[in-house]
Structure formats: structure tokens, C-alpha cells
């Protein structure tokens, strides 16, 4: 602005000045008032959500904090959890869609590389014999095995889930009690979340045309039951419970064990805690 221009403005009449002020006041008032109303409108449901809860009979999600434990030193690789999960949750029976799975880590003598296979490995599919049946082939029985162990895997129901962050339609979310769920009716099948998950826990379910994942059997835990995989595990390698209850299996598990999580560096803060896994597991 030029010197002259400033001089001109300085000479503005009181009337003009007053008109501008009035306008600013009026406009500011409208904007401000509207803004407050908008903010209030936006905030009110949030504030209400603290006390509000979904209409689940006999269940208040504000009173629970679910977590899952896996003791890999106990897992025998029987895959009963995998079969039970498929039945309980109507997961496609083919050997390529899993909400939970078990990995086998085998290091042979004199080798540095670890052999990793899961139930969807062709050799294991053949050993299983039929869709919906799963078993690990005894493929290392004659090999010189230096070290071998099984690791059950499932959705980690992270505290900061990357999958939820990337969903463009609000089809997946974190519940108050700790589960990460998918609303299949909202899912558009873009599979951004499948890409975002650092653990490969999500898959696209062609039968329902939506992305699918472990829910910790939300329909069971809200009725006081254990997830199906925990229910059938014959060796208690899987532990589940409410961390608000200090005597629940998971609270005891976390108290009595030094636990780790998968890929802590990803910043997702998993809620599935592992005991007895090795450096190869991620």
C-alpha cells in the first residue's frame, strides 16, 4: 500500500469507520455464533458417548477392557482354533481366508534362515485333506531340527489402529471396550485397511463382499463367553479376559509373565500379548 493510500484511509469519516465496525461485529457475531453452535453440535455426541452405550442386553462397554494373551511355549499346532474360528464366524472354508492362523517357525541345523509355514502352505493343505479341515504336515520329522515352535496369530486390536485411520467411510472402528470391528454394511471393499494393517490380519471376504477380520468373537464376549479359539484351545495357549477384572485370566497372564507385542515399532500399540516368541516372529 502506498503512502498516499494510508493517508486516504486516515481521512476516513467516522461514519464510514462506524459502518465497517458494525459490519465486522455483525459478521463476526454470525460467524462466531454459528461456529459455537457447530462446535457444540460436533462435541455434544462425543460428550454423550462417554455415558452412552450400544444396545447390547446386559452389557456395558464402559465397564470392560478386553485383551488377549498368547503363550507360544504351550502351542502344539493342532489348529483347533483355526477350525473353530471358521465355524463360529462363517469364514470361507477354503484354505486362503483366515481370521486367525498359526505359524510354524523351524530352524534346521547349520542353516541361518528360518523356515516359516502356516496351514495354508500347499503341503499342509494336502495333509489336511479337505476344505475346513486343517493340520500341519509332519514335514520336518526326519530333518535335523535345531529349533521349532508354533505361534498363533490374530488381529491385535491395536490401541492406535492404522486400519481404522485409513478407512474412508467409517466402516471400521475401535470400540470403548477395546475391540476393532468392521461394519460390513458400510464397507465399500477398497481394502485400504488390508494394506494398512502391519500384521496381515485383514482379508477381503468375497462371499460377503466386504473386508473381514477377527472380532475377538464380539458376539460371544458380550455374552460372557470366551472367543471360540480360546474356548477350544486344548493347552491354554490362548488367554482372554477383562483387564478391569484383576483376577481374570488375562490380568493374571500379564501379571505373571514378561510379555511382548508384535512390531512395537509400528506404533499401533497391539493388545495381543505374546510369551515365548523368538526374534524371527513379527
Amino acid at each position: 500500500m502506498t503512502q498516499e493510500g494510508i493517508a486516504v484511509e486516515d481521512k476516513a469519516t467516522e461514519l464510514e469507520e462506524a459502518g465497517r465496525r458494525d459490519f465486522m461485529r455483525l459478521f463476526g457475531g454470525v460467524l462466531g455464533g454459528g461456529g459455537i453452535a457447530l462446535v457444540a453440535a460436533a462435541l455434544l455426541p462425543e460428550a454423550a458417548a462417554v455415558a452412552d452405550k450400544p444396545d447390547i442386553p446386559g452389557y456395558d462397554w464402559n465397564k470392560h477392557h478386553w485383551s488377549f494373551g498368547v503363550d507360544a511355549t504351550k502351542c502344539i499346532g493342532c489348529l483347533r482354533c483355526v477350525e473353530a474360528c471358521k465355524v463360529e464366524n462363517n469364514v470361507p472354508k477354503d484354505p486362503h481366508h483366515f481370521r486367525t492362523w498359526v505359524e510354524r517357525y523351524v530352524t534346521l541345523e547349520g542353516e541361518e534362515k528360518t523356515h516359516i509355514d502356516s496351514q495354508h502352505d500347499p503341503v499342509n493343505i494336502e495333509a489336511a485333506g479337505a476344505d475346513g479341515k486343517y493340520r500341519f504336515a509332519n514335514r520336518y520329522k526326519d530333518a535335523k531340527v535345531d529349533k521349532a515352535f508354533f505361534v498363533p496369530k490374530l488381529c491385535n486390536h491395536c490401541t492406535h489402529p492404522a486400519c481404522v485411520q485409513v478407512c474412508p467411510v467409517g466402516a471400521t472402528y475401535k470400540t470403548e471396550d477395546g475391540a476393532v470391528l468392521i461394519d460390513h454394511t458400510m464397507c465399500i471393499g477398497c481394502q485400504y485397511c488390508v494394506q494398512a494393517c502391519p500384521y496381515g490380519a485383514r482379508f477381503f471376504n468375497e462371499e460377503i463382499q466386504a473386508t473381514d477380520k477377527c472380532t475377538w468373537c464380539y458376539h460371544r464376549i458380550t455374552k460372557g463367553l470366551n472367543p471360540a479359539c480360546v474356548e477350544v484351545c486344548p493347552v491354554s495357549a490362548r488367554v482372554f479376559g477383562d483387564r478391569n477384572d484383576k483376577q481374570s485370566p488375562i490380568s493374571i497372564f500379564l501379571r505373571n509373565n514378561r510379555v511382548t507385542v508384535l512390531r512395537p515399532e509400528s506404533g499401533n500399540a497391539p493388545n495381543v500379548f505374546y510369551v515365548g516368541i523368538d526374534k524371527e516372529v513379527s
Partner: peptide, 12 residues
Amino acid sequence: SVAEIASDKPKY
């Protein structure tokens, strides 16, 4: 959707 998911009938 939370209540809908929770309303599934347990099989086991």
C-alpha cells in the same frame, strides 16, 4: 453396528 455385531448367535 456394534449391537448388530454383538447380536450374532454363538455356535460353540
